[in-house]
Design a protein around this nucleic acid. Structure first.
Length: 224
DNA sequence: TCATTAAATTGTT
DNA sequence: AACAATTTAATGA
């Protein structure tokens, strides 16, 4: 597909591939358009691919036994995920990934992923960094959920999308509706709206139609 | 290009 | 959760 090549080239790990490797990876990786609300991959399913978000936004969720969904984190365009699940193959996937809005998603087959792992040191270094970064992210998610008030939760959810290592090149203008922000932050849309206004008054971001412009990532990260 | 309409998003109760 | 106001996108003259 035409959109895949530039996406990989602009990723963190893409430039370390030789031209031949790059061509092979592109040929082996499939791209799918996932409608809003549809599953990118299912919890419990066998892990057959490493998954990249070319365009759009995907959230990581899990369903409780009562059917309530809990959102862990969002993955914006440019993010790749599922390496942890791949490394633990053949264990099934532990969470669902759902498109928050219509998204273009790349599926790199396990065989391709493993070949890169076996042959490309830069790719390994990238994965180590990403795993480490995610570890830190999930530790902070715990306090995020238990300690923080809604304003701070929204602030951190937005700041997380800016992690330069996990999600390079995320634009300053996040095209997220306030409803989507609420979903990612674990608060209602109304509360997200309220929080955004607080954060705007604090000078950390600017509320725009259909999105927010982030002015101070560090400020968001440490809010509250 | 402009005006009208529908759809999406936001702000407020 | 429901409502009204605002913005954007789509349509056709």
């Amino acid at each position: 597909m035409h959109t895949l090549l530039p996406a990989i080239k602009s990723s963190v790990w893409g430039p370390s591939l030789s031209p031949a490797e790059l061509a092979l990876v592109v040929a082996e990786t499939s791209v799918k358009v996932v409608p809003a609300g549809a599953y990118v991959c299912h919890k419990g399913a066998p892990v057959e691919a490493w998954i990249g978000v070319i365009e759009g936004l995907v959230k990581m969720t899990s369903l409780s036994s009562e059917g309530k969904s809990v959102t862990f984190t969002g993955v914006p365009a440019g993010g790749w995920f599922g390496e942890g699940s791949l490394l633990k193959y053949p264990e099934p996937r532990l969470y669902d990934m759902v498109a928050v809005r219509e998204s273009r998603v790349a599926y790199m087959p396990r065989a391709t992923f493993n070949r890169l792992l076996d042959t490309n040191i830069s790719f390994n270094r990238f994965l180590l960094k990403q795993l480490n970064e995610r570890l830190g992210q999930f530790i902070s998610v715990i306090e995020f959920d238990r300690l923080l008030e809604p304003d701070a939760r929204v602030a951190r959810a937005l700041a997380q999308l800016f992690n330069p290592l996990l999600y390079p090149g995320t634009a300053a203008l996040l095209q997220l509706s306030q409803e989507e922000i609420g979903l990612l932050s674990g608060v209602s849309r109304q509360r997200a709206n309220q929080a955004l206004q607080v954060l705007e008054k604090a000078g950390l971001l600017k509320v725009e139609y259909g999105g927010v412009r982030v002015l101070d990532v560090e400020g968001l990260k440490h809010f509250g």
